[in-house]
Design a protein around this nucleic acid. Structure first.
Length: 587
RNA sequence: GGGCCCGUAGUCUAGCGGUUAUGAUGCCACCCUGUCACGGUGGAGAUCGCGGGUUCGAAUCCCGUCGGGCCCGCCA
């Protein structure tokens, strides 16, 4: 045994005991004949005292440097009354070294372990094993463990079974780009890594495992973002004999109890608010709005039906929208600040941003567009937006999609500037009634918004033939503080409905059979009604940890170019390996 | 595929056409018996990401390239 205790556990009551500790040298305070070493492991820090009265022991402390791994045997004693350290959990005691040895020396680390912050993230990623020693990453890894442990315990208590599904599976064309794995045994053929275990969990329902879950690694070969990595982890769940309401209820209970258990200092409003997709887009311009603050978008189109202002008029005449957003107390924004907002708007693709500032002192409204408006229109706009003295009004006119994207971005920007989002609130909500299909003008067919096994809502079934774009799906997303943290649906279990959907998606009999034959066949052997959801663990932990990227809650994440800076993956491989796989590289 | 931002000792950072390239911290040596971001004295440490160009002169300006970040597209 290298140690009798960890560096986080000694207390006043251990005084007088002889203990053995092992850990890393966190800091060393060398007073010559007296040296203090803060010994660190993942449990905490304990102060060890080396006195020159024992020269051999003292010599070990003298040669030790930061991050040396050392072992000491010593006597726990109460610190002198004036020397207690309230910042350490072990701060009432110290260990007087009786013997000591260096288990392994350490080079000077490329960044401080003891003091965090400031370094380029790429440096932290290159030396991730050092970064992981630090408190921030340790806290995040521990939180992540607790989250996953809670999920497992919760679902186990609810009667769920955790079942593993393969990582090497069949590639299917729709959805995200697959990561492919060449087969050595079958020249020219490939496996895909799962984008999610979607089909497999549905087959488990056919098999009668009516409550399934898995902490499932998922792979998508798409471009990265702060909240998107090429591999990520979902709490994949599926249940038989459930309706949408059952899945929502269970998930809500899971999240509520999870947060109470692991982040008790945060407030979770319950029940979770519910928005339809149409309502979310209308009021927030987003299907994942941050509901910690209001700042709702307001439609102005009807007020401007006969406006002479060409920008508004043109947008409305071509089927677009004019919508606005009230930025409370921002009337004093400088030209520069307004230009920044305009740049943000342009960045989403609109041509410009119309604005009006209502001075707090009751003076004349400053505005970029009032002079182009008709009689009374400015007053009508201000009234509709409920503009008060001191407010800045932001207005966008364009195609509905662009108006939504732009005002969503401006809404988040204003909230950020005004610090409207309470960091200690976890505002979960449900977005429901997603459309089942969206028109794909490039391919001249319908695409599944969720996936091709998502069930349409019963009362919309007649629309499948008459107006497919209006069909709502039994699909639901759970949204947290502006992030989609989970999505799911009730699946189609009727063969005729499935066929109808394939027809709309332009999937031929032959394609359906070759791509989904196993599913269709399975569903002919008694498929129970079923549905599920897949919360994204990385994003949830990120939000619980108050981090702004999921990289901070992953042990070994990849860069935006999908590279691992520590191992230098991806990398070239031997000619021999390629030959085994029957692969020749295109020059 | 596109837009924007960043790259200077181990680390963070100042400098933005002429400096001996700034400071902090870390590192090394010596001194110090109650520190806990210990303190004190001294020292070493930088092909200014890389390549090319403009210029009498480039860390500084221009072009390219590499790496990193944020975003758009993409992400059933």
């Amino acid at each position: 045994m290298y140690r009798s205790h960890t560096c986080g556990e000694l207390r006043q009551e251990h005084a007088g005991q002889e203990v053995t500790l092992a850990g890393w040298v966190h800091r060393r305070r060398d007073h010559g004949p007296l040296i203090f070493v803060d010994l660190r492991d993942r449990y905490g820090i304990t102060q060890v005292v080396f006195d020159s009265a024992s020269p051999e022991v003292h010599a070990v402390a003298e040669e030790s440097r930061s991050e040396y791994v050392i072992q000491i045997r010593g006597l726990v004693r109460s610190r002198p009354p004036e020397a207690h350290n309230p910042d350490l959990s072990t701060g009432d005691v110290e260990v007087v070294a009786l013997s000591a040895s260096v288990l392994n020396p350490a080079r000077t680390t490329p960044f401080y372990i003891a003091k965090e912050g400031g370094e380029e993230e790429s440096l932290r990623l290159k030396y991730r094993y050092l970064d992981l020693r630090r408190e921030r990453m340790q806290r995040n890894m521990i939180l992540r463990h607790r989250v996953v442990k809670f999920m497992r315990d919760f679902l186990d208590a609810q009667g769920f079974l955790e079942i593993e599904t393969p990582i090497l599976i069949k590639s299917t064309p729709e959805g995200a780009r697959d990561y492919l794995v060449p087969s050595r045994v079958h020249p020219g053929e490939f496996y895909a890594l799962p984008q999610s275990p979607q089909q497999l969990k549905q087959l488990l329902m056919v098999a009668g495992y009516d409550k399934y879950f898995q902490v499932a690694r998922c792979f998508r070969d798409e471009d990265l973002r702060a909240d998107r990595q090429p591999e990520f982890t979902q709490l994949d769940m599926e249940m038989s004999f459930v309706e949408q309401e059952d899945v929502i209820h269970l998930t809500e209970q899971l999240f509520t109890e999870l947060c109470a258990a692991v982040v008790p200092h945060k407030r979770v409003p319950t029940p979770f608010r519910r928005l339809t997709y149409a309502e979310a887009m209308e009021r927030y311009g987003s299907d994942k709005p941050d509901l910690r603050y209001d700042l709702e978008l307001v439609n102005l189109g009807d007020l401007l039906a006969s406006t002479p202002f060409n920008v508004f008029k043109g947008a409305l005449e071509s089927g677009g929208q004019v919508k606005g957003l009230r930025a409370p107390g921002c009337a004093g924004y400088s030209r520069k600040q307004i230009d920044e907002l305009t740049d943000i708007a342009r960045g989403s693709g609109v041509k410009g941003l119309a604005w009006a500032a209502i001075p707090a002192d009751g003076g004349d409204v400053r505005s970029s567009f009032a002079k182009f408006l008709g009689e009374g229109e400015l007053q009508a706009i201000i009234a509709r937006l409920e503009g008060q003295p001191g407010d800045l009004l932001l207005i966008v006119a364009d195609r509905p999609g662009l108006v939504a994207t732009t005002l969503d971005k401006l809404r988040r920007e204003i909230a950020e500037r005004l610090k409207l989002a309470d960091p200690n609130v976890l505002n979960f909500s449900w977005v429901v009634d997603f459309p089942l299909l969206e028109w794909n003008p490039d391919e001249n067919r319908w695409d599944a918004v969720h996936h091709p096994f998502t069930a349409p809502q019963d009362e919309d079934l007649p629309l499948m033939t008459s107006d497919p774009g209006k069909v709502r799906a039994k699909a639901y997303d759970v949204v947290l503080n502006g992030y989609e943290v989970g999505g799911g649906s009730i699946r189609i279990h009727r063969r005729d409905v499935q066929q109808q959907l394939f027809d709309l998606l332009g999937i031929s009999q032959e394609t359906a059979l070759s791509q989904f034959g196993h599913m269709l066949e399975a569903f002919e052997y008694g498929a129970p009604p079923h549905g599920g959801i897949a919360p994204g663990i990385d994003r949830i932990v990120m939000l619980l940890a108050d981090e702004s990227t999921i990289r901070e809650v992953m042990a070994f994440p990849k860069t935006q170019q999908a590279a691992d800076l520590m191992t230098n993956a991806p990398s070239e491989v031997d000619e021999r390996q390629l030959r085994d796989l029957h692969i020749r590289l295109a020059k």
